[in-house]
Amino acid sequence: MTDAGESDEALIGRYARGDAAAFVPLYRRHEMRVWRYLERNVGNRATTDELMQEVWFAVARDAVRYEPTARFTTWLFTIARNRMIDSIRTSRQQVSLETVGYEAELVVQQLTTEPNAGPLAAVVVRDQAAALTQALGQLPREQRDAFLLQIEGDLSVEEVATITQSSFETTKSRLRYARTKLRELLSEYA
């Protein structure tokens, strides 16, 4: 079976059994998803790099303990989230997301009010990503976390609820509020 057609669970299983090569496609498949989840929650590239390394080190180390009772992505994002929370708790490189959010709001406002004006227009498309990041920064942490878990991890509401240790209804509400807020903030870029 080729790596491209192999499931995440099969790849991590192969890696756990000693096939080092199985880790490469697994990493490449989820690298950006984990990166975005971390980076958009933490808001700091250096910290994200650090966390990224910790998360994947943990995946490699605990691969032998992975049991395919849950999807690999659920397991992966559980690790990512736990590492991120640990990082925030220890204030190792804590970033005030609220502060980022306020700054982001200014950027978003600027972009939304003057989307086609002067040199700013040239960078609108490019800055959409930045605007998105900033918009995410304006979300309450729980909503942002739930939204990023679902969209980057391609997880169901139940899986997000499991990872965040929240009830299904709470998780569902968080996701709805997060999307509504993002829709408002990004409506000009739709």
Binding site: W35, A130, L132, Y189
Partner: peptide, 10 residues
């Protein structure tokens, strides 16, 4: 779409 434009990478 916005993520695809995001140049940030590990």
């Amino acid at each position: 779409r916005a993520s695809a434009l995001d140049p940030s990478r590990p």
